[in-house]
Design a protein around this nucleic acid. Sequence first.
DNA 1: CAGTTGATTCGCT
DNA 2: GCGAATCAACTGG
Length: 224
Amino acid sequence: MARQQDPPPQGLSGQLTGTRLSRDFFREDVLDVAPALLGATLTHAGVTVRLTEVEAYAGEQDPGSHAFRGPTPRTEVMFGQAGHLYVYFTYGMHWCANVVTGVEGEASAVLLRAGEVVDGRETAAARRPGIAERDWARGPARLALSLGLTGEHTGLDACEVGGPASFHAPTQHVPASRIRTGPRVGVAGLGGDAASYPWRFYLDGERSVSAYRPAKPRRRRAEA
DNA sequence: CAGTTGATTCGCT
DNA sequence: GCGAATCAACTGG
């Protein structure tokens, strides 16, 4: 088959997205890739989301990572090639999407936590019936839903030219002063030490990013 | 706005 | 079995 052109990120007679992110971009250290993804876009299934919040997970060295206890059928893709998607199921009902980073075997990945829909709004609206636009991709499960990403898409190579998913760099430079960091959200296995891993990165002042909410230990209902 | 709660399936011990 | 990288709906301010 003839070599396909990089599919234009849809609609938007122009410059909503920058150059496509290559596999080399994702092969770098996850702590470098994660902040560099802020302001970048992910396009899949007719919708483009501009990323405003991500989290870094550093493979087998990271007690918060699904890869911490080594490869399993679920996490196998994390140990593979950078630029592939790792989409996992949680809380009995939600899908969340990551992109694998680093060298093969390292199992690091960036969780895509929030963004704003910048193209394919009709499609996104249909996928998020009755939900306010600012909430369409606010939160990892909502973001995956807006993009139509589920477990079927785990292992999908977002760097494959002509493939169904692609990342593109921000059109405008994102100043470092707009990037904030903080503890990761809802991560178990850290023994309350989430603050030791300030690997959540977000753009300050974005409506699609809510302020950090400490995960309050769930108080078992009504004492006495 | 902040805080609380039930929903519901899978992965791993 | 247990608990999860969460969400939507609801309450009260």
